[in-house]
């Protein structure tokens, strides 16, 4: 890759997919029911496949995944947030997969370097988004307790959603339009789930666009330590 702009964008998209894939993988052995265990692992696998293609566009996939320090990662702060309870995981999925579907649909329609991957991934992401939406409806319009916890989760993660629409160098997309459509989609889904669209700011002065610039929240360092531990302890290990 000669130009730097596609590499920057490949890292941003690739790191989003890689980090969220790892977070979802943490549910293995802990999901509330077996079907969810399988669903979350399958979504994680789709994201890992996307991450491999994207990181390979920016360099050596293993080196990039396992040997970079925290500050070199370009993922959104949203995807690195801990799984929390099941509602938090679903809210994170709803926010992110809706964004990813909008972005990949735009990229797939263009003729840039990301079009082939986006055209493929957008079909997978449609299932991820549907999964998140179905759960949002069930939890929101469920019991008093499930609604309360789903609302708490939506509120807690809301402040990380503004960053998604900061333009990324090398990606040809109408960010403002995507943000409008993302907000419309949230209003629609949360409304049907009898939930309230959170009111707080969608980014803080301390965080706007920060993940894309390598600034991450505290739990990310611990996640990376676990993710990179094996490779760093046993370089070149294989089985």
């Amino acid at each position: 890759m000669t130009a730097t702009a596609p590499a920057t964008a490949a890292l941003a998209l690739g790191d989003d997919a890689l980090v969220l894939s790892h977070r979802l993988g943490e549910w293995a052995g802990h999901a509330p029911v077996l079907e969810e265990e399988v669903a979350l692992a399958n979504i994680a696998l789709d994201l890992l496949g996307q991450a491999r293609v994207l990181l390979s566009m920016a360099g050596d996939e293993d080196e990039l995944a396992y040997l970079r320090e925290e500050r070199a990662f370009r993922n959104l702060q949203l995807v690195e947030q801990p799984n929390g309870d099941f509602a938090h995981t679903i809210a994170r999925q709803l926010y992110f997969s809706t964004y990813q579907q909008l972005l990949y649909t735009e990229l797939a329609a263009g003729d840039g370097p990301f079009a082939p991957l986006a055209a493929k991934a957008v079909k997978e992401v449609a299932y991820h988004r549907d999964h998140a939406e179905q759960w949002t409806l069930r939890l929101g319009d469920g019991t008093e307790l499930s609604q309360e916890r789903m609302q708490q989760a939506c509120d807690a993660l809301w402040r990380f959603t503004g960053e998604m629409f900061q333009p990324v160098e090398g990606l040809d997309a109408d960010w403002a339009d995507m943000e409008t459509r993302w907000l419309e989609s949230m209003t629609d889904v949360l409304g049907r789930a009898t939930l309230t669209v959170p009111e707080g700011p969608r980014s803080g002065a301390w965080s706007a666009g920060a993940g894309r610039q390598g600034l991450h929240t505290e739990p990310f360092g611990r996640m990376l330590a676990e993710m990179q531990h094996l490779h760093r302890s046993h370089p070149g290990a294989s089985w």
Partner: peptide, 29 residues
Amino acid sequence: LLSRFSSTACKALRRCLSCREPFDHFKEL
């Protein structure tokens, strides 16, 4: 439909309401 995700990424898990057997469905992509 029981789950949109099954034994592999390409399959969904369903159940027949006549014979009650669960089965995999190669989901549309």
